[in-house]
Measured scan of single mutants.
Amino acid sequence: SEEEIREAFRVFDKDGNGYISAADLRHVMTNLGEKLTDEEVDEMIREADIDGDGQVNYEDFVQMMTA
């Protein structure tokens, strides 16, 4: 549901600035027990970053979650 997606976005957007940065993503993945290299984190950001601004905004996140 849209509310679940919004809630998930809030979990990833640690600093609440409306964007998921590589640092935000790394933090959440580490908490989930996933040890990722910087390259892996950057690749995840690139794949999710639809508009190419280097971070994942809510619209990018929705597209990723509903793809």
Rank of each mutant, 00 (worst) to 15 (best):
T30W: 10
D53V: 08
R6T: 03
V62Q: 02
F9G: 00
L32K: 03
L36E: 02
Q63L: 11
Y58M: 05
A67Y: 01
H27Y: 14
E34Q: 15
E4I: 13
Y58G: 00
D60W: 15
R26M: 10
L36Y: 15
E4F: 11
E40S: 04
E43H: 12
E3D: 12
Q55P: 04
D24Y: 03
M65W: 06
T30N: 14
K35H: 13
R10F: 04
E3P: 04
S1Q: 07
S21D: 08
A23P: 05
G18Q: 01
M44Q: 02
Y58D: 00
R26K: 12
L36T: 03
G54N: 06
Q55D: 04
T66H: 11
E47Y: 13
M64F: 08
A22L: 15
R10Q: 07
Y58L: 07
Y19K: 14
D51P: 05
V11P: 05
E59Y: 09
I20C: 04
L32P: 00
G54L: 04
F61G: 00
R10H: 04
D13I: 02
D13S: 02
A23F: 05
V41T: 03
A22F: 14
R26W: 11
D15Q: 11
D49H: 15
H27T: 10
V62A: 03
D49F: 11
A67G: 07
H27Q: 13
A8F: 06
M64D: 02
I20L: 03
T30P: 01
G33R: 14
N31D: 05
G52A: 13
L36N: 03
K14Q: 07
A22Y: 12
T37K: 06
K35G: 13
L36G: 02
E59R: 05
D13R: 00
S1Y: 13
D38G: 08
R26Y: 11
N31R: 10
F12R: 03
H27N: 10
I20T: 01
Y58P: 00
S21K: 09
D42Q: 06
F12E: 01
D38I: 12
E7H: 10
G54R: 05
D13F: 02
D49G: 15
Y58Q: 02
G54H: 05
F12I: 04
G52K: 10
N57M: 11
D60C: 14
G52W: 09
D42R: 05
V41W: 08
Y58E: 05
M65V: 08
E39R: 11
I45D: 00
L25S: 02
R46D: 04
V41Q: 03
G33S: 14
F9K: 00
E2T: 09
A8S: 05
R46Q: 07
Q63F: 08
D53E: 12
A8G: 03
K35A: 10
L25Q: 00
E34S: 15
G33C: 15
I45L: 11
D49Q: 14
G52I: 11
E40W: 11
D15C: 08
D51N: 14
E4R: 13
F12M: 06
V41H: 04
S21Q: 05
E47T: 15
L36F: 15
V11H: 10
I20Q: 01
T66G: 07
V56K: 00
G18P: 00
V56Y: 12
R46V: 04
G54W: 04
D15E: 11
A8M: 09
F61Y: 06
T37S: 10
D53A: 07
G18A: 01
A67V: 10
D51V: 09
A8L: 11
T30K: 15
N31M: 14
N31K: 13
T66K: 11
V11Y: 09
G16R: 06
F61A: 03
F12P: 00
Q55E: 06
E59T: 04
A22W: 11
G16P: 00
L25C: 05
A48W: 08
E4Y: 13
A67T: 15
E34Y: 11
D42F: 08
G52M: 13
M65A: 03
E39K: 12
A22G: 07
R26I: 11
S1E: 07
D53W: 09
K14F: 09
T37R: 06
D42Y: 09
A8T: 03
Q55H: 09
D60I: 15
E3Y: 10
N57I: 06
E7G: 07
E34G: 15
D13T: 01
F12G: 00
E2R: 13
D60L: 14
T66A: 11
M64K: 14
N17M: 07
T37E: 02
D13G: 01
I50H: 11
G33T: 11
E43N: 15
D60E: 12
K14H: 13
Q63A: 11
Y58S: 01
M44V: 04
E39M: 10
R46N: 09
V41D: 01
E59Q: 06
G18Y: 02
E39N: 09
I45P: 00
E2K: 12
K14S: 08
Q63M: 10
D42E: 11
V28I: 11
E4L: 09
M64H: 07
D24W: 03
E59H: 09
D13P: 00
Y19Q: 06
I50G: 08
E7Y: 05
F12H: 06
D38C: 08
A8N: 03
T37Q: 04
N17L: 08
Q55C: 10
M44I: 06
G16M: 07
V28G: 02
N31C: 14
E40A: 10
D53L: 08
D38V: 12
E2W: 15
V28N: 00
D53I: 10
V41C: 04
L32M: 07
I45V: 05
D42G: 05
D38N: 12
E7Q: 10
T30D: 07
M29E: 00
E7C: 08
D15T: 09
R6Y: 09
E34K: 15
R10T: 05
